[in-house]
């Protein structure tokens, strides 16, 4: 009886779909995702879209922080750069939507390269503080460069059109989000088994050793920053196109923390973990909203406590996961899988 992972060749070890079983469930999941918009109402589709944007951004941050080990407290800034780029391209230069998203990613990647430069000189705590500073500097630019960003009033983005068809409803947008999420997950999954991805992991584990075995630290770190920011830029552009307006208030420091929380709760250094984390962190406040509605109906006046409660629960989640399950939901998932693989003879 098969009671473990047997990988006899490197090809097997590097395969994206590890077994027939995985392929089967992935197909099932994909079918569900395709059928989902026909079953769900507008609210559920809205939440699904938000989860999609969070997944793209979280995978980006996980590539940088989880795989390359470079801590970034400024992820929200890159989302902002992407969002503003796409908004400005669409409203000023009349770019079509499908072209503005990759452009947003590219400009964000460029910003990421610039922010990544300190990573060549400092690491750990110091890099963390440098990215924190970048976050506040970008926030300042978003607010104050009024000729470009229109300051705090923000830019209104017209609904996108693809091949003459205007994307107006949450349902239409769901397909776009699904497409980009599939692309993002597929690319990240492939990247981490390539030479570049393995170089990232080597740098995370020990940068000096990585350099000695012939990895170009300069290039790898910067490309990690660029790829991560590209993801963030795309996520930001999609998110703001979906919300139809972009203001500096959408990209506070707290958003950066939320993304870090996603990858920590989900699991550092795991693509699957980023997805789990994004779903979990996006759903928690929605669930609390739902609870507050119930409380409002049964005991009016007490629902106000849910506004700060969201923050408290968010903080508690971060702390609890770090103390009790530092490897996140992905590890819990693996444990459950391992349990059922040998069940009922687990010994």
């Amino acid at each position: 009886m098969r009671c473990g992972d047997f990988k006899e060749t490197y090809i097997q070890d590097e395969a994206i779909f590890q077994s027939l079983f995985v392929k089967f469930w992935l197909c099932l999941l994909f079918l569900f995702l395709l059928a989902f918009p026909f079953m769900a109402n507008a609210y559920l589709l809205y939440v699904a879209n938000m989860i999609g944007f969070a997944i793209i951004g979280a995978i980006g941050l996980n590539l940088l922080t989880g795989f390359t080990g470079q801590i970034s407290l400024g992820h929200a800034a890159f989302l902002g750069v992407g969002a503003y780029t796409s908004a400005i391209l669409v409203t000023r230069l009349g770019f079509p939507f499908w072209l503005s998203v990759p452009c947003a990613g590219l400009v964000a990647a460029l910003a990421g390269l610039i922010i990544g430069i300190p990573s060549l000189r400092v690491k750990g705590l110091y890099l963390c503080i440098a990215t924190l500073a970048a976050q506040f500097i970008f926030e300042f630019i978003f607010t104050r460069w009024e000729s470009m960003t229109k300051g705090i009033t923000g830019i209104h983005i017209p609904p996108p059109t693809i091949a003459g068809y205007a994307i107006k409803t949450e349902k239409d947008f769901y397909w776009i989000t699904l497409f980009f999420v599939a692309l993002a997950v597929g690319y990240a999954r492939n990247l981490i088994r390539s030479r570049t991805g393995r170089a990232f992991i080597a740098i995370r584990d020990r940068d000096l050793s990585a350099e000695i075995i012939g990895i170009n630290l300069f290039r790898s770190k910067l490309s990690s920053f660029a790829i991560s920011s590209f993801y963030a830029g795309v996520a930001g552009a999609l998110w703001m196109t979906f919300l139809k307006v972009v203001t500096p208030d959408h990209f506070p420091f707290l958003l950066s923390i939320q993304y870090l929380a996603m990858i920590i709760v989900g699991g550092l250094g795991s693509v699957l973990g980023s997805i789990f984390g994004a779903v979990f962190i996006t759903l928690t406040p929605e669930l609390l909203n739902y609870l507050s509605e119930i409380v409002k109906a049964s005991a009016p006046g007490y629902e106000e406590i849910f506004v700060p409660m969201k923050e408290v629960i968010f903080g508690v989640l971060i702390v609890l996961f770090l103390i009790f399950e530092p490897r996140g939901l992905a590890e819990i998932w693996n444990r459950i899988k391992a349990f059922f693989r040998l069940w009922p003879f687990s010994y």
Binding site: C128, F314, G315, V319, I323
Partner: peptide
């Protein structure tokens, strides 16, 4: 419990603590 954990865990736990305190004070 976090002694010896990587920098990111320690940084994030203090950020989480800050959020909890802020929310608590808000309440």
């Amino acid at each position: 419990p976090l002694i010896g954990e990587p920098v990111i865990s320690v940084i994030m736990v203090t950020i989480g603590l800050g959020i909890i305190l802020k929310g608590g004070m808000y309440i």
